[in-house]
Amino acid sequence: MRLKQFCLVAAFATFLLYFVLTVSLAYFFSGARFWEVLLSERMIFSIQLSVFVATVAMGLAMLLAIPTAYALSRYDFFGKTLVDTVLELPMIVSPAAIGAMLLIFFNTPLGEWIQNNIQQFVFTVYGIVLAQFITVIGVAVRMVKAALDEISPRYEAVARTLGASSFTAFRTTTLPLCRHGIFAAAILTWSKAIGEFGATITVAGTMAMRTETLPVAVYMRLAISDIEGAVASICVLLLIGFSVLYIARLIVKRGTYARY
């Protein structure tokens, strides 16, 4: 078998795997039940909560990811490799473990002080935001760094010799040049956040109409054997997820200025 044929078969097999999983939802899909679940107060709350917390988590992650990625991409500093490695934490530790780590932290004196004097996180919406933020920040940094690495630092260097401060040089050259990459990173971070389950359930629990995000809703419906309700929730999640990913792909496809 030639390499091309082998790779095409592998690609088709991968597609088939996800396609069969998605199509199998149809076995338990009920149109009437879908609309009933979709228009229920509980589902609308779940959608609103999921979109809201994922957006906040993504926003916070991007705020921190851009300067972090810039530091990793542009500067050599003591402990750079360590920082770079630690950012892989969400990828090597399961989300449930990250949630557990957060719970453990909030049981330390410092964590308890934060809970008592600044903000209650455990079993609250803030906890969901924190869990999602911690889970997605590593991915956000990785993606923004990849976008920054594609842009030559020479643009900023020249901008500075033309009178721009270091921040102005970044704002007027590198930032617009990698805006597609940063936007794609933001959308993928958001989609990862909206699908986050393990850390969310560990930190915020499963409280209907309080901390019930869409993935938690799927779990809660399965727990009471409401398969059709779970399928409806999965369909909503898929619809939102695929929509944002499709937009991200379109943006990335529009290309970057890296080749210049």
């Binding site: 030559s152 643009y155 260097a157």
Partner: peptide, 15 residues
């Protein structure tokens, strides 16, 4: 810093 040197610079890749 470069922005205060008041000089003109053209790098090899022009940028």
């Amino acid at each position: 810093p470069p922005e205060q040197k008041n000089l003109a610079y053209v790098p090899q890749d022009l940028a």
